[in-house]
Design a binder for these strands. Sequence first.
DNA 1: CAGATTACTAACCGTGCGGTAGAAAATACA
DNA 2: TGTATTTTCTACCGCACGGTTAGTAATCTG
Lengths: 213, 213
Amino acid sequence: MQPNDASTAQVRPTKPLTITERARRAQLIGVTIDLVARHGYPGTSLARIAEAAGISKAAVLYHFPSKDAVVRTAYASVLESLTEYVGAEVAARSGAPAVEAYVRSLVAYLRDHPDHTRMIVEALREETGIGDTPNAPSRREAVAGLIDAARAAGDYRPGVDPQTTAVIVNGAIDAIVSERLADPDFDSRSAAEELVGMLRRSLGTAPRDTDNP
Amino acid sequence: MQPNDASTAQVRPTKPLTITERARRAQLIGVTIDLVARHGYPGTSLARIAEAAGISKAAVLYHFPSKDAVVRTAYASVLESLTEYVGAEVAARSGAPAVEAYVRSLVAYLRDHPDHTRMIVEALREETGIGDTPNAPSRREAVAGLIDAARAAGDYRPGVDPQTTAVIVNGAIDAIVSERLADPDFDSRSAAEELVGMLRRSLGTAPRDTDNP
DNA sequence: CAGATTACTAACCGTGCGGTAGAAAATACA
DNA sequence: TGTATTTTCTACCGCACGGTTAGTAATCTG
């Protein structure tokens, strides 16, 4: 019999996973993150995963219902780790500082975890890309929420459009992260600071130069 | 005999392509752009290209040395069209207006040519992504040059770092374009304007709020 | 120790891939 | 017209893919 199918939609009384089961799953997730980071999504075949884990293909499919489930689980684990870190940083602040913490912590995390970064980039392009996927607006919405809160707190000008600004900010962050990935000499930390500075100058209330002379 | 191998590194006295040859090439490039836009790079197989063009696989490979050459050629044609448009817009201006023309024209072009946009996105992720490709720094350099010129012209503050700013600006543009691709209701034109406004406030010389009270 | 369950392997299957071979149409040219 | 060349087709090759099957170790449990 096949073990628990913990990919999605778990019902309550799931039998506690065996020690072996948990260890294998963790190992498979680990090697998968590694493989995706090094060879990309398409280059990560079932055979490669099995080989990297030192077991047969069938053994991999014994622990997961499909190759895709392995990759999705690995991605979920990476994403959870990231959101946990960034979430904590953001939650500890409010207003403009929360937005700035978002920028800084996201760039910092991805600088310190290039494998995770590559995995996320690969996964993103799956879900974005071609299919008319509604394209998880969650990230945009989250950032838009932060910006909206900062505006409500008086840190940002009333004219700031949270949605549009969120798109721009996320894009800028992604570009900084990508650049760092391509060129390890790129100073992503100071780039993040530069972005923070730009946001202060362009969104902040302090010097109104156009609509209120 | 196989016809001219015009993929790359063409030597001078290339025999003028046949009418048939040119027509087929154009057609193949066309359907390839379409296929890549609709089904992505991996979903664009030789058989699909052939089927879409109404000929056999072998016929495709008669006109191009490999499937990859077809796709690369299609990509090159798209890229040429884009750079021609944006290049003209930018070249007609100088200083900050050139930077702003870059932002506006790039967003506008990609809004008007979603197929081209999807193709470029797909191609980008090939060259970026995994392999330690030096990742064509040409775009960043080009934009950095524009920013540097704007700074030299006195439009931008001396403290502005062209390289970092270029990365941020390109990232913001890409995000706007992607958002528009995912959500046709997204007003990418006004988003571009918002970005231009942000750049003016954060890079412009007019109101120095920090280093020169 | 015996039986059940867990964890695995080797071999295989069907599919789609890029690409090739050789012959046959279509076309150009004398 | 006949011949040469350009263009195309059908059929095939080898390969890597995700996944399945049947059997077998290994481990737990009474």
